[in-house]
């Protein structure tokens, strides 16, 4: 697939953008060095039987692995902490800005299932006013009942689940209009 190569050849930069839209830029071809506070450090990806894949950086070893990957989205577990990035080209970076501008003013908050499980109880109804942190439903996963709380204050506009429903991870449970 010769064209994919030319995509990378044509551009001289890639961006890793995290969930909070912070971006890290890397020049192509990608070097085994990164710049921190204007100083450059060597970074090496290594692997051995005892440790598995790890990164050697500033004389320390960091366990690293991919938790999830989909298209250009990567969830990386480095030193036990998970980081999610999308890798963007200069063109898709522009597009990202355009889309976030377009969506910027949205006052809709969607509560998604943090894990697969079964809905035990829905504690709110449509049109109810709720505070931030108020429990909105109980989700049972791995025999534990987890209270799902509202992340914002506002008014419930839609309830998509009812008791005894099974839900998948990231399934939309409830929509809230932010105050």
């Amino acid at each position: 697939m010769a064209m994919a190569k030319t995509l990378l050849q044509k551009i001289n930069k890639l961006y890793a953008v995290n969930a909070k839209k912070k971006k890290y830029s890397f020049s192509l071809p990608l070097e085994d060095r990164i710049k921190v506070d204007k100083k450059e450090f060597d970074i090496k990806l290594k692997e051995d039987d005892k440790l598995g894949t790890y990164i050697l950086w500033k004389n320390r070893k960091y366990p690293v692995e991919v938790v999830f990957k989909r298209q250009n989205k990567y969830e990386i577990l480095l030193n036990g902490v998970s980081y999610t990035f999308t890798i963007e080209t200069p063109t898709s970076m522009k597009r990202l800005r355009f889309i976030s501008r377009k969506k910027g003013s949205s006052d809709k908050e969607v509560i998604k299932a943090p894990m697969p499980g079964k809905i035990i109880d829905v504690l709110v109804q449509e049109d109810a006013e709720i505070r931030k942190g108020e429990p909105i439903l109980i989700l049972e996963a791995m025999k534990m009942q987890n209270e799902i709380q509202s992340t914002v204050a506002g008014k419930i506009t839609a309830v998509h689940v009812k008791a005894n429903d099974s839900v998948m991870k990231d399934e939309i449970l409830i929509e809230i209009k932010k105050k």
């Binding site: 697939m1 064209m3 994919a4 995509l7 250009n72 989205k73 999308t86 063109t91 898709s92 597009r95």
Partner: peptide, 17 residues
């Protein structure tokens, strides 16, 4: 579905293979 057009077309090329 893809998040941007470059990935859409790269995905299409892969599909064609």
């Amino acid at each position: 579905i893809f998040e941007d057009e470059e990935n859409t077309i790269l995905g299409l090329k892969k599909f064609l293979s």
